[in-house]
Design a protein around this nucleic acid. Sequence first.
DNA 1: GTCTATAGTGAGATAGAC
DNA 2: GTCTATCTCACTATAGAC
Lengths: 191, 191
Amino acid sequence: MSSQERLVESARALLWERGYVGTSPKSIQQRAGAGQGSMYHHFAGKHELALAAIRRTAEEMRAAAETQLSAPGTALERITAYLRRERDVLKGCPVGRLTQDPDVMADPALRAPVEETFAWLRDRLTRVLDAGRDAGELDRALDPAATAAAIVAVLQGGYVLARASGTADSFGQAVSGVLALLAGHAVAPAE
Amino acid sequence: MSSQERLVESARALLWERGYVGTSPKSIQQRAGAGQGSMYHHFAGKHELALAAIRRTAEEMRAAAETQLSAPGTALERITAYLRRERDVLKGCPVGRLTQDPDVMADPALRAPVEETFAWLRDRLTRVLDAGRDAGELDRALDPAATAAAIVAVLQGGYVLARASGTADSFGQAVSGVLALLAGHAVAPAE
DNA sequence: GTCTATAGTGAGATAGAC
DNA sequence: GTCTATCTCACTATAGAC
């Protein structure tokens, strides 16, 4: 892996663990095994490197979600697969975390990938729910957009609960909670 | 207000806006209109001042939740009142935010109030749901603990969505989403 | 109690050699 | 491309005067 690549990966890991404010150029270099000169040759500074890191992380998150959400199966099955997918729950969401970073939110360039990712995810889930409704699997009274927002929120909030309690179980409980609520709005097949 | 009081309030505000990592003693002093000497006279350092600030914020959050959750009304009404209470949505949750702070989570003393607050909140909501079930308002099949976790998660995740989108509306959508799901599990009264 | 002075450390970046 | 030296400023705290 090139030095440039290692710097981006190092920045991604540190942004995840410590956020933008809590991450120094030096720490990125050390983790990447690269010197100052190397970093400032490839990137104009912390900001530009973080931008590259955030963009990549956002892309990966969308790709990962798309894997479960575009799989075959009913809407409920796809959403369940997405929510129950294996995750580094205690580390939190690498994109959602940036939402709490004042310097990221204050910078339009750094903020854009975060905003776009959540907009995309909510829209993607809305379309899954819509498809489920059209297929007669889900209660027609359900508002797809609001339900999608609730599902994404449970995911993000589940990370918060997990980190607060120190156990991944909390995340699982929250997920089980919405899935049970959602299951109650499933239309019994051919009854 | 005493200088000591102003320092704690200043620390609370900055911890909310910028987190522990992003807040310097100097910025706390400036906001409080106090000098270095004053701060280090009243507190051993940033850590001790932050501890006082976090404890107070956690207490206030519990007290605010208790106001809605102990009010008269059905379980659904009380939970709705809690979720729809006016909030500084775009600023995020002052306690949930700390969950993303590496230095807070790494320190048992700073972390304890955060952990306790969420444990308390989940338990409190569980008891409200339990009461609703006992009163015959809610579906017996609902798991109170899992549902409570989902509700708290929607709240915390709603903050994330709001900050990501830059609009408080996202929070409202997520809340509407769970409340609609939950309403589907309400037992029709005397039918 | 509050002030100013001081100090050690790290952040963030630049410069120029190689 | 990468290295080392250097620079300025901020962070966090201590010391001692008032």
